[in-house]
Nucleic acid binder design. Structure first.
Length: 424
RNA sequence: GGAGAGGUGGCUGAGUGGUCGAAAGCGCCGCACUCGAAAUGCGGUGACCCUUUACGGGGUCCGGGGGUUCGAAUCCCUCCCUCUCCGCCA
């Protein structure tokens, strides 16, 4: 949610910034609604004040043993007028609130303009795409070779866009997640958290998935309206929701490994082969709850923490700054990490690190106490994959394959395999 | 799943349908006392929103929602949550 004070004070400025990311705000309608709201609110509060004062007087008169009937007659109609005013105000406020919930975040000034991913700006590279003296297989072929990746079984017991991993491949998957958690908790100072995978609608509203993107989610049938989380960002960031955090406690850094569930509606033709785009995948997620003035330093740090994993694994990657048109709804600035996949001869997204500034914090009322003002103010929230485990599995398989189809293990993963050099 | 108890400010915990955003204690902040600290005394100390250049003024909030009433923390309905006992279970 944007700051309503900014919206009121600089509506055209806000509209211009939203236009950068392709969002057209109807400023005339907004202005009109806002004026209506102001009038109604002032009027409503006056009426409430009158009712309060008069009711108090009745109480006093009664206590004094006076006849209160004349007073009662006098206020009899007032109550209805108050309710009427309250309802009118509530309706306008609901309408404004809906608009507010639908507005995407403002892009940071540094974010390049653009329409889609082709306008993203590469920032830096690390490592060189692996050279093979044979034609590298993709992960589907490698997985089949090891009898460790079974899409048919998954389709049989669930649906397409699921996978069953077996044996060494399943173990590699677990090792990757374990390794990431170990690095982030031991060396980067994150607190490991275990969170619900089903969350309430207001939680998804807090991070921005609802109300606009319900079609991307899986809802669960039952007595409670619950959704499967599309990312651990949702439950973990919301841990700060409805809280007032003392300044000394900032920043909070949390890491969680969770499955992520996405309906992938609207991506029917895309990445149908293999594990690239699944309805369920595992991710190790990093979340920062930051002091507002330090959130951009935090974004660099967080991105660095995700990069660290790729470097440790010896995987070539690049960092790109997303353009205004490719950024997520809640983000003010996003870096994507793209790993080299020999099977596709392309860099593919493996992590996305964003600063949402106060956008999510306002929605979920995540605040800190500013010692300078003594008042609660919104924190800044950041999140990033550190990393997407499924895609990381693909990257390791494809980058570490040898001519005979065997897969060598990156040094840092060998302790998770009893020191073995090869996956088996 | 069955039976019962309860959800009040940072915490503990009072609260009669009427001047209650709410006693008291603790905690925290300021001041006084002190060389300093402790103890003590005095004062202050919730969130959200509207309005105002400012000083200030006003409204809402006692788990959520709805109702009764001139007036609801207090009465009624409903949902959620917590605790205790029983059952069941990883």
């Amino acid at each position: 949610m944007l700051d309503v004070k900014t919206l009121r004070g600089d509506l055209d400025g806000v509209a211009a910034q939203l236009r950068r990311r392709g969002y057209e705000l109807d400023t005339k309608r907004y202005q009109a609604l806002e004026e209506e709201r102001r009038t109604l609110q002032v009027r409503t509060q006056e009426l409430q004040n009158e009712r309060k004062t008069r009711s108090k007087a009745i109480g006093q008169a009664k206590a004094a043993g006076e006849d209160i009937q004349p007073l009662l007659d006098e206020v009899s109609a007032l109550s209805d007028r108050v309710s009427e005013a309250e309802e009118g105000l509530a309706a306008v406020q609901r309408e404004l609130h809906e608009i507010h919930l639908g507005l995407p975040n403002l892009p940071h000034p540094d974010v390049p303009d653009g329409d889609d991913e082709s306008d993203n700006v590469p920032l830096r590279h690390w490592g060189e795409p692996a050279a093979f003296d044979f034609t590298p297989r993709d992960h589907v072929a490698l997985g089949a070779l090891a009898n460790g990746m079974d899409f048919e079984a998954a389709a049989r017991i669930a649906a397409s866009r699921f996978v069953v991993l077996r044996g060494p491949v399943a173990r590699l998957h677990r090792a990757l997640a374990g390794y990431m958690l170990d690095v982030h908790t031991r060396e980067h100072g994150y607190e490991e958290v275990y969170v619900p995978y089903l969350v309430a609608p207001q939680t998804l509203e807090g991070t921005g998935q609802l109300p606009k993107f319900e079609e991307d989610l899986f809802a669960v049938s039952g007595d409670h309206p619950l959704y499967l989380i599309p990312t651990a960002e949702v439950p973990v960031t919301n841990l700060a929701g409805q809280q007032i955090i003392e300044a000394a406690a900032l920043p909070l850094r949390m890491v969680a490994q969770t499955p992520c569930f996405r309906s992938e509606a609207g991506s029917y033709g895309k990445d149908t082969r293999g594990m690239i785009r699944q309805h369920q995948f595992e991710k190790v997620e990093l979340v920062h709850i930051s002091h507002p003035e330090r959130s951009y330093e935090a974004l660099e740090e967080l991105t660095g923490h995700a990069e660290r994993v790729l470097r440790d694994l010896g995987l070539a990657y690049r960092v790109v700054t997303l353009c205004t048109g490719d950024m997520g709804f809640a983000a003010a600035k996003t870096y994507d990490l793209e790993v080299w996949l020999p099977g596709q001869q392309a860099y593919r997204e493996i992590s996305s690190c964003s600063n949402t500034e106060a956008f999510q914090a306002r929605r979920m009322q995540a605040r800190w106490r500013n010692p300078e003002t003594g008042r609660p103010e919104p924190v800044h929230t950041l999140n990033g994959s550190g990393l997407a485990v499924g895609r990381c599995l693909i990257a390791v398989l494809e980058n570490y394959q040898e001519a005979d189809g065997r897969v060598r293990l990156p040094e840092v993963l060998r302790p998770y395999f009893g020191g073995a050099e090869y996956l088996s």
